[in-house]
Design a protein around this nucleic acid. Structure first.
Lengths: 347, 347
DNA sequence: TTGTAAGCGTTATCAG
DNA sequence: CTGATAACGCTTACAA
């Protein structure tokens, strides 16, 4: 009635106080109606508050709620990158699962800068998330390992949960998928198809899960009864790295090969680009296999043999653990999918 | 000395109070060295506070800072999906640009559910972000338009900024890229290559920017001197939708076509899958073009003719506007990239 | 320069 | 069932 209305200039956001005032009730009552759990408010008040809130366009101030409640319905996801199709698929799966559990996800990206991981954990800790999820990076020999672990432990001590995805380099609960086993089975299948002489493209960056893929594949080939020859190279961990490595091979080396296994689909495609540039046809002249089974890549020609990982399951297990501890280390299976890029050899 | 240490059970997080106490200074002093701007603190105190903070593993409680300061160094990004390579590229570009400006990004996904957009805006408003960025959806005839606009206006009135990306259906500052013009130029180039009879795959979901692509292409073809015939279809706005539409065409219709233009690369790939299933070779029997120039798709065969959008520029302009108003509606160019999927026709 | 005191918007406790 | 009142962790006048 008496307030000078319709000024220009940023008005103060509508607060619970405003709503309470307008509804003619106390702040706590308004709070109970708008957020609280049990419906212990008289119907008459209830409707008044609701009306006032709607008229004023009230939105609860999340920060205030967090600070008052001391907890936050948020999980923080630390991930290497987001344009990478593998990680964006992972992030999407996690967000879907989180939403189903009424959790917000705050995403932070390391861009593969090792030290950022520590910074991000520090920063995220300030958001008081229910859990911090580390997906993806994970070095064979973690550079800032000690500090990172200390930081995460402090976070856990104050009630936060730490969940790792596909990395076992840190002493926290982990959702793994079986990189070693998946690659091993793939190798076994390919050996069964007649492949003997293969090149494995690993990662120059010493990522643990990637090294497991290399080792799994080598083991799988070695296990096959036939005598096999498997070389391993460690180019840069990118599409370009894989391509460039292929471009750098001698004609002789290339001739001898029957198969290139790259530790990710992305690198497999780089390898294919390189092989084609060298004048080879896939799969007629040489076969190629990858790892991850990225759906965005369903259109490459020829369809890529790879190892499929059930990201939805991974996400489900991850969120479950983010909400409450669960001692046993579930390992989500990763299983080979043979497609046209690796046909049976010697028909 | 006297505190009973090493309990089990969630300890309370370390607060500024704890740090101040340990450093033997007052809370504000601790605050000033740890966060405040001017270095108006004696060097002796300064070092003590820093030491205490490090020893205790202090992290500022972000929520408390937000509530005390009233502002948040965060921008909220509302996006259709994140596994979609186009949107993940967009999100990545925005995050990169935001990081460069010391902003956090909180991502929310609509999953193409129309009404979610309104809910998300409400929810995000509670986070008091500096800006809300709406990327992507944008209906020709916004279903919840009125309410959405009201909500966003309220947000702006309280000092928040609203920035739209590639949608002009709402009365807020917009970073556009020229869907119409990009498609028009593409059509002109293709007409120049000899294409006359084409099929345009639009979107059954009435998305404004998508409709602009359709119209731009149609206009471009019509402008070409030669007499052209352009049909437009509106299948579901997905890879499958495009494929299924192709599968549903009669042999006759298919025979007549020289070119399929799909309004996104993703749909273009669906179309290719359909065409191949129908026994056609690309580009020998029929040409295909898309829109977006998604980098993840660099490996499709044949390389796809498409329209490139400079997402980095889009992101840059977006963040700039998120930080401060900037009246003029910059339109980021979108320009055709002709590749092997649309070779010159008739030698 | 430093500390005291008052807020920021919300929830939780505890009388009425 | 409701409403004072005290937190929550931090910042920002204002006084010392």
């Amino acid at each position: 009635m008496s307030e000078p209305q319709s000024d220009e200039g940023p008005r103060r956001p509508v607060t619970l106080d405003d709503v309470a005032l307008r509804a003619g009730v106390s702040q706590p009552t308004a709070s109970r109606v708008l957020n609280g759990s049990a419906r212990k408010v008289a119907e008459s008040y209830r409707t008044k508050v609701l009306a006032a809130a709607r008229e004023l366009g009230y939105t609860p101030n999340l920060a205030a709620q967090v600070i008052a409640r001391g907890s936050s319905r948020t999980v923080a996801l630390i991930i290497s990158g987001i344009s990478d199709p593998y990680f964006s698929a992972m992030a999407a799966a996690i967000m879907r699962q989180a939403e189903a559990n009424d959790l917000r996800v705050s995403i932070a990206v390391t861009d593969r800068r090792v030290d950022r991981e520590l910074d991000l954990v520090r920063e995220l800790r300030g958001q008081q998330p229910q859990a911090i999820i580390l997906a993806g990076t994970g070095y064979v020999d973690p550079p800032s390992g000690g500090e990172l672990i200390a930081e995460l432990q402090r976070y856990e001590e104050t009630g936060g949960r730490v969940v790792l995805i596909s990395r076992t380099d840190l002493p926290f609960e982990t959702v793994r998928f079986d990189n070693h086993e998946g690659a091993r089975e793939l190798a076994a299948e390919l050996a069964g198809l007649g492949y003997r002489r293969s090149l494995v493209l690993g990662s120059a960056t010493p990522l643990l899960s990637m090294q497991q893929r290399v080792e799994g594949f080598v083991a799988g080939m070695a296990q096959s009864s036939a005598d096999t020859a498997t070389e391993v190279a460690y180019p840069e961990f990118t599409w370009e790295g894989a391509r460039d490595h292929i471009l750098g091979l001698s004609d002789d080396e290339l001739q001898r090969l029957q198969l290139v296994f790259a530790i990710t689909d992305d690198m497999a495609l780089g390898a294919i680009a390189g092989l084609r540039a060298r004048g080879l046809r896939i799969p007629e002249d040489i076969a190629v296999a990858g790892f991850d089974d990225i759906t965005t890549l369903r259109d490459v020609v020829p369809p890529l043999t790879t190892v499929h990982v059930a990201l939805d399951t991974v996400a489900e297990e991850t969120i479950k653990r983010a909400l409450s501890p669960d001692g046993d280390v579930r390992t989500v299976p990763a299983s080979p999918v043979v497609r046209a890029s690796t046909p049976r050899l010697h028909g």
